[in-house]
Design a protein around this nucleic acid. Sequence first.
DNA 1: CCAAATTTGTTTCATTTGTAACCATTGAAA
DNA 2: TTTCAATGGTTACAAATGAAACAAATTTGG
Lengths: 147, 147
Amino acid sequence: MEPEILELESFLPYRLYRLADAVSREFSRIYKERQGLTRPEWRTLSGLGQRGTMTATELGEQSAMHKTKVSRAVAELERRRWLTRTPDGNDRRVEHLTLTKAGLAAYREMVPLAKVFERELLARLSREERAAVVSGVAALEVALGGK
Amino acid sequence: MEPEILELESFLPYRLYRLADAVSREFSRIYKERQGLTRPEWRTLSGLGQRGTMTATELGEQSAMHKTKVSRAVAELERRRWLTRTPDGNDRRVEHLTLTKAGLAAYREMVPLAKVFERELLARLSREERAAVVSGVAALEVALGGK
DNA sequence: CCAAATTTGTTTCATTTGTAACCATTGAAA
DNA sequence: TTTCAATGGTTACAAATGAAACAAATTTGG
């Protein structure tokens, strides 16, 4: 029996990871240089900008972050006065998070940059390749259960 | 002008990252539980198992790891006596890394598990979806320059 | 031949991360 | 009620990471 070999360069988990790492790294330069944000902070800003108001738990679900990451990102954005916490009327454990004017301004500044980034990334692909990426990613999301 | 919003759930960098994270996390359970390896250690084992012998720099290039990760992973595998270093004859800065019997045995144990993992992941997709994933990933790799 | 620049790999230090413990509050069960 | 489990969120501690400084060897350019 021949010795079985795994070709790392063709191994899907590795390829996906490297891809995501490269893209994420490139994009992070934008919010890092522009706003001095970490990835959890960017996701928090982005989530609240998109949805308006969320609790920490909801934020974690929406942006796939562990609750400690959420907690720390929220604390930092609060320190910058980019968001405020409003206690829930019924459940005193819960706080509703909302961006302040300043937070919203930062969000509004980031949105077009994010869109351009994505557009330029996809622009490097042919129409068919773009379609493959989109449906491939969607299919994997479904396959991985949850969302 | 309406306020521009970014839908995080549709944003490619986020989706890619979340996907890779989920897949990688799931797969890491295998080499973590089975061999007590970290990801850099797994990649080192995998790279050397596949190629036979490499220098640290080559390892870093093949497996997309920062040189400090390589350095630490190699040190740990050496501590376990899973690999040995052989000084290069011409350049005394360079060491050639090779798996020992024990390292090779661990590698051989992992290869089928990795293949099964990948196969089962792809098995959750239809033929067309698999094709989309494969060509989408390949296209993005090319688009991101390098490899 | 020599000084400066480059390369290989390790180490140090600060930051980020994850796990687990934790506190406070709420809900459910008895 | 009173207790016990579950939930929202923070914190403490240990491990993983990245940037930068580093030592040693090599290459390059006068």
